[in-house]
């Protein structure tokens, strides 16, 4: 089985990897690049734990082949903080206790950050529908939604 050489950028850094054509971007991120912050919850695009951005668009990395990443800019949870400075969403998630077990948290943060980049003033309903593809089994979503809305308000106030 011949492997495919891929060059891409992950969280701003140039990366090169060889992947089996059957390997997903999620496989590559975790097993090949050591970026295990992106989680596999289902492998079928139903849970959102593997959410990443590709050229600014939110996707499930389990539903994209590693080979498709050629030339793409990929964003993962590891790239959300700016050096030692946490992203406001990360701060608010801790402050609001918007996580319990934390397994869905990386995907939700990636998705929520992408939402706020598209829509700095989402309504509660918009947040809920944007995050409908990110399953959380612990929280009942209440504190997650509040954390996202609070972050959006804070970012708007700061600007």
């Amino acid at each position: 089985m011949s492997r495919i050489h891929v060059t891409a950028r992950v969280n701003g850094d140039k990366v090169e990897f060889l992947c089996d054509p059957r390997e997903t971007l999620l496989d590559v991120l975790r097993d090949n690049l050591g970026l295990t912050g992106t989680k596999e919850g289902c492998g079928t695009g139903d849970c959102g734990a593997c959410s990443v951005t590709v050229d600014g668009r939110l996707i499930c990395s389990c539903l994209m082949l590693g080979a498709e990443a050629e030339g793409k800019e990929i964003g993962t949870v590891e790239g959300i903080a700016n050096g030692e400075e946490l992203h406001p969403l990360q701060v608010k998630f801790i402050e609001h206790a918007a996580l319990q077990c934390g397994i869905c948290t990386p995907g939700i943060l990636v998705a929520a950050k992408n939402l706020l980049e598209h829509n700095p003033a989402p309504s509660e309903t918009e947040v809920r529908y944007w995050l409908a593809g990110n399953l959380c089994r612990c929280t009942g979503y209440d504190k997650i939604i509040r954390a996202v809305l609070d972050t959006a308000a804070e970012i708007r106030a700061a600007n």
Partner: peptide
């Protein structure tokens, strides 16, 4: 069809 993530693809 599907989630925000699915809509991107």
């Amino acid at each position: 069809v599907g989630s925000t993530q699915i809509q991107s693809r």
